[in-house]
Every structure is written in C-alpha cells, then in structure tokens.
C-alpha cells in the first residue's frame, strides 16, 4: 500500500503561496531530504526576505529569519558556532543574487559547509513583480514595463555559472520543478546537497528554476510552459560543479 504522507520536516501550517507557485514543491523536496537523512532534530534553517520569508513557519526545525540577502552570513555564524548542526538557507533571486551577492559569493569562496537552496523565478514576487537580477532580457515587469533593456540595465546573473568558477564552491547544480522528470532530478540534487553537508564536504548550492504565475501574469499551466520555453534556454539545467565527485574519483 502506498500512503501519501506529508514529510515530517514540514509543519501543519498552511502555505501562503499563490496558486500554481512552485515554492510548495520545493519546500516538500527540502523536507523530504531532511526526513530521508534523518537530520530534522539537528537542522537549523535560515529564512530570507522575499516570498519565502515565512519558511520559519513551514519547516519543522529550528529557524532564524535573516535580513535581506544576509542568510549565508547568518548561516555561517550558526554553522561556525556549532558545526554538528545541519544548516541551510532558503533564498530567492533578489535576496541571493542582488542584495546578498557578496554574502553568496563569499560563503561559497570560503567553502562554508552549508546548503543553499536558491529559488530562481526571475522576478521579485513578494513586493509585487519588479525586475530581478535574473529577469530575462525583454521580460516585462513592474520596473521594466517596456521589457528588460540590456542596454540600460544589463544582463541577468547566471548564478551557477558564476559560482562554479570559485575554488571554494563544492557542489553547484541547477534544477527545475516544472514537470515530473525535473522534480525527480531536483529531489535527488537537493538531497545530495544536504548529504554533502552531513559528510562535511563543504558548500553546496541548488538553483531551482521556479515559477511566479501571479507576477508573470500567467495561469499555473501557462507559467510552467513559459518556464520551459524561456527560462530553461537561458538557464540550462545540469551539474555546474561537483568538486566532491572529483575528490572521490581520486
């Protein structure tokens, strides 16, 4: 008999996310990873600022809520204070790749033994749909009403590509949650990112290409299609770096 249960690492609080938003799937994948490694009792989560600001209500683990962009620094402090804890951050694109870029890059460069879950939906969701560091060229948002003009505001930041150039970064993979196949791959990647930390290996970051039907102005189904057609060509899925696999091969 197959019983469909809620992961133990999720609380019973109802999620506040919009219909069709993929945060819910990603929360579930993170919780499943925590359950399957049996680490909930020793896990400390760091919530960020953005749509995922309330993650401290959803994960059934000790949590601290960080200032905008500062989650990797807070996570560094928690991890250094007690290296036996499993510490993860859950951040969006504005938080991680714009206001918190320094904290992101330097925690990776230090090879901080933490797990970063990076949700990239190419827009600032919580504040109502402004241009993000990952908004696509030509993408219409509240603050790029004529489409993102790369001549004046430049190009999107490709976080996995950028971080994979750092010697300190351990495991960097980009996944998506727009179909069953991709969700399965995402589950595997997220679990690996936590397992790396349990094994003391170092910095792991999983970028999850995600949707924002509300601010994209799409139906849930339409958003999944838009993601497939527009985001994935710009943000190709795959493993960008796996220093640990190389180390194991030696």
């Amino acid at each position: 008999m197959i019983v469909f249960d809620k992961p133990k690492a999720l609380t019973d609080a109802p999620l506040h996310y919009c219909p069709g938003c993929t945060h819910g799937i990603i929360h579930r994948l993170v919780a499943e990873a925590i359950d399957s490694l049996g680490i909930a009792g020793d896990t400390i989560g760091v919530a960020s600022v953005g749509c995922s600001v309330f993650t401290y209500n959803y994960f059934n683990v000790d949590m601290v809520q960080a200032a905008h962009g500062r989650a990797p620094a807070v996570a560094t402090g928690v991890k250094r204070a007690d290296p036996s804890k499993i510490v993860f951050t859950y951040q969006g694109d504005g938080d991680l790749a714009s206001i918190g870029m320094a904290e992101t890059v330097h925690s990776a460069a230090r090879g901080e033994n933490i797990t970063v879950i990076f949700v990239n939906n190419a827009i600032y969701g919580m504040t109502g749909g402004q241009m993000a560091p990952t908004s696509l060229p030509g993408q219409v948002t509240q603050t790029s009403p004529y489409g993102r003009d790369t001549n004046t505001v430049g190009f999107p930041v490709k976080v996995c590509e950028l971080l994979s150039t750092l010697d300190g970064a351990g495991y960097i993979e980009r996944v998506a949650v727009n179909n069953v196949k991709n969700v399965k791959a995402a589950k595997k990647a997220i679990e690996k990112a936590f397992r790396n930390q349990v094994e003391g290996k170092g910095f792991s970051l999983i970028e999850v290409v995600s949707t924002c039907p509300t601010n994209w102005g799409k139906t849930p189904q339409g958003a999944l299609e838009w993601l497939e057609e527009n985001m994935l060509p710009y943000y190709p899925l795959g493993v960008y770096k796996d220093k640990f696999a190389k180390e194991e091969a030696k």
Binding site: I44, V46, A66, R70, A73, V74, G77, V78, R80, A81
Partner: peptide, 9 residues
C-alpha cells in the same frame, strides 16, 4: 550577521 547566527545558536 555572522554574530547574529552564532548568537542565535
């Protein structure tokens, strides 16, 4: 923010 993390712990 690192101080915040360590103090939180």
């Amino acid at each position: 923010n690192m101080v915040i993390g360590a103090a939180a712990a």
